[in-house]
Amino acid sequence: MSSYIAVDPDKCIGCKTCEAACASSHRRAGMQRRHRLIFVSNRGISTVVTCHHCDDAPCVNVCPVEALKAEDGVVRTDEQRCIGCKLCAIACPYGAIEPSGTPVSGVAGVMYKTPAAPAGQSPLITWEIGVSPIAVKCDLCTGAAGKPQCVANCLSGALKLVTDEEINRETRYRNVMSANASEVMMLDSWNERRL
């Protein structure tokens, strides 16, 4: 059974503390410095997108070098093995994988500065000389801190670690409540017509 980070957009205040906590814990573990969740804000509503650690993960299935592997219900990236092909980001149904890279040194340790791509351009089609893109995605902090740091540091309690079973149970409950509400409305309407 897989676990993933669920987000309550009604509670999210858009502070991005989750991004900072995520990036910091992975940096301390010697991994890519980029945070593993994607912040989205539109018309006053903010939320984050994270990996759902799918049972039959499309990202794992398309990786040509097996840099992505599902272990114990968590899909992890082997950053040393990743070749930056971006197939996993294209295959992800949630848009939870972003290619990110750390500049690599040029000749004799000299790093060549190149202009960054325009902000509106998709990270799937951008590239920079001297930067090797790596698939960056949520790993529930298993290799960095042991527990998701975004959840532990969320100021408003908008983030929660959940399992598929908990989500399915909540969905069934909401479906029953919705069906009951529809039934009550139909009975009220029928009673009004009788009078």
Rank of each mutant, 00 (worst) to 15 (best):
V136D: 13
S100A: 13
V107Y: 12
S156H: 05
W127R: 02
A108E: 15
L87M: 09
A135C: 13
C141H: 05
G146A: 09
C138Y: 02
M111S: 12
T102S: 11
K69E: 13
R81G: 13
C154F: 07
L140A: 06
V151T: 02
A145D: 03
Y112L: 10
A144K: 05
A117M: 13
V75P: 00
M111Y: 06
G73D: 12
A119M: 11
A89R: 03
Q80W: 10
P115S: 03
K137R: 14
G146M: 02
W127S: 14
C82K: 14
A91F: 03
D139A: 12
G143R: 11
P99S: 08
D72C: 02
I125C: 00
A152T: 02
E71Q: 11
K137P: 04
L68C: 14
L140K: 10
R81F: 04
G120H: 06
A152R: 11
A91W: 00
Q121L: 14
T114M: 07
V74M: 13
D139W: 01
Q149S: 08
I134P: 01
T102H: 12
C150F: 06
T142H: 03
P148E: 04
Q149T: 15
A108Y: 04
A67Q: 15
P103I: 04
V107A: 05
A116W: 00
D139G: 12
A70M: 09
A119L: 13
N153H: 06
D139Q: 09
I97F: 07
L140V: 09
I97Q: 07
G106S: 02
C92L: 10
P118H: 10
T142Q: 15
G146N: 09
A70I: 00
K113D: 14
P93D: 04
C92M: 08
C85F: 13
S100L: 12
P103N: 08
Q121K: 12
D72G: 05
L155M: 06
Y112I: 15
I97H: 05
P123H: 11
D139I: 01
V110K: 11
W127G: 07
T114D: 10
D139M: 14
P115H: 05
T114A: 06
V75W: 03
I125S: 10
T142L: 12
G109C: 04
V131P: 09
C138L: 02
R76G: 01
Q80A: 15
V151A: 11
G120W: 06
S156T: 08
C92G: 03
I125M: 00
T102F: 03
M111I: 09
D78W: 06
E98N: 12
A108H: 02
A91E: 01
L155S: 10
V110I: 13
S105N: 10
V104S: 09
P99K: 02
C141S: 03
L155I: 04
Y94V: 06
T102W: 03
C88H: 11
G95W: 08
V131A: 08
K69H: 10
L140Y: 09
C154E: 12
G73F: 05
P118D: 14
N153P: 00
T102P: 00
Q121I: 14
V110R: 14
A144Y: 01
C138I: 07
G120Y: 03
G143D: 05
Q149C: 01
C92Q: 08
V74R: 01
A70N: 14
A89L: 00
P118W: 01
C141M: 00
P99F: 01
G109H: 05
V74S: 04
